[in-house]
Amino acid sequence: MINKSTQKLDNIEGYREIDITVFRYSSQVKDSKPEFQTYRLVETPGMTLYIALIKIWSTMDHHLSFDFVCRAGICGSCSMVVNGKPRLACKTRTNEFEDGKITLLPLPTFKHIKDLSVDTGNWMNAMSKQMESWIHTKEVTDISAIEKPIEPDVAQAVFDLDRCIECGICLASCSTKIMREDFVGAVGINRTARFAIDPHDERTDEEFYELIGDDEGVFGCMSLMGCEDHCPKDLPLQSKIAYMRRKMVKV
């Protein structure tokens, strides 16, 4: 707990130094050559990769690019590969790396922009469209009238799947996606599961089959569970992919 901490902020000598190595490359600049650059900085208590990168950027290298928005683990902007593992940088504390050496790479499988910055937004929007990530219904809602009742447990179950933040980590942890660009990944399959269990949505299994019934969809998944094991929101991807697969083979 913070108040019990024996460390003091002004006592810089008491802290260790850490080395952060960052992949540097700009796809915009023609003669840019990919390289790795190492920054050495003092690790302050409670330091996250967000704090560390902002420090590097504002005091050591103003030209370094990366993406942060909420810095609280809810917006999904700052996914990157930390010592081999795709993670949310803002939720990664530097003190979990005992040797003080951290290597940061941009998220693979997405279009690279510069350094640690990749384009997840356009891919995710395209995925959302491909999965038709919206309620399909013929019912016309009168917004002045009392809403349609939903069983509390069902609402909770939908919410549990709706928590996906489209951070892209499931894709970056997925061997299928690494090999096959068109694979829609856990994010896409989970999205269909979310609507499949939502009572507002009237789509049939046949209609969902049209979205994910091929090797770019649920049948492309090899169940390697990279998604399940790296998802920063702990979504039940393992059981939901299986759920959709069972549904789809019955179609």
């Binding site: 809602t141 939908v158 609507f195």
Partner: peptide, 17 residues
Amino acid sequence: PKAIRELAAWGVPWNRI
């Protein structure tokens, strides 16, 4: 109230009673 009911119809999984 209309906004929230519109959102419910759009699938926001509001906590239910």
